[in-house]
Design a protein around this nucleic acid. Sequence first.
DNA 1: CCACTTGGTTCCATAATGCAACCACCTGGA
DNA 2: TCCAGGTGGTTGCATTATGGAACCAAGTGG
Lengths: 148, 148
Amino acid sequence: MKRKSLEAAPCPVARSLDVIGDWWSLLIVRDAFLGRRRFGEFQKSLGLSKNILTQRLRGLVDDGIMTQVPASDGSSYQEYALTPKGRDLHTVILALRQWGEDHCFDAEPCPTALVERATGKPVRRLTVQAEDGRPLGLGETMVVAPAG
Amino acid sequence: MKRKSLEAAPCPVARSLDVIGDWWSLLIVRDAFLGRRRFGEFQKSLGLSKNILTQRLRGLVDDGIMTQVPASDGSSYQEYALTPKGRDLHTVILALRQWGEDHCFDAEPCPTALVERATGKPVRRLTVQAEDGRPLGLGETMVVAPAG
DNA sequence: CCACTTGGTTCCATAATGCAACCACCTGGA
DNA sequence: TCCAGGTGGTTGCATTATGGAACCAAGTGG
């Protein structure tokens, strides 16, 4: 009776969620985007227990999303850094961020924003677009099996 | 010792994950995008047990992501349909899809693709962009607190 | 009116989570 | 050099969530 695995599912969404779909992994990745690299930083920031953090970090390393690297401050500790595969989660995190900004702050205003570092201007909103850039609504897309 | 709630977190990513960050909710939403509407359809497609599906659907309805509507075939059963809030998850699902296509099909080719219905051409790749459309790498963005 | 489908609920065993205590190694200062 | 504290974990145990199966009521089709 273990948790159902989706790793063999044909759908890429299911496979992604099988890897990063638990409660903490994406938050750890988000923290890594924010520059956090040390075990203690993640633990303090997320407020999760250390055994769970250990499990999750190990999972992220096993899945090639993060790697352990020597600490940048010269100490003999190790740090966790995103791999290219982990950095590719940027759009996933941004999509979640924009949805949360729109729908999870009913009363209060959302206290943070993602901006371009050079200009300080907010990042452009993600939209589903056709090949040529036309915006596509929900009914204008479909999922197909290319080489049935 | 219940699962830690992130609903009061200041970060919109955390709040999003608090709502849709469990193993099944986003997959149900994905199925809804694919046109599935009935309890039985979700259950057969996802292969999850009915009690869990009941819980998740109830949660999605409570959170305003889906609603129960009278069945479209005239029977007295009910169906589950996405609300506008649920439809806004389209970019989140697409981001997960693209990441999965890139990183979760090492050996085999990914068997499905999201295409524009009218043309059959694949949807454009999501990227993080500046206000004017320039692509932004990971180091070119930062999170700020607008009205500190 | 009766069999079958649909959409659940209930019960129970098992896995995941969270807290706290513990521990080894590293580091910095006296 | 020695020891206090920080870092990065592990272990044990209580509590929750998950998953499977059995059960059940209302709807539906013949």
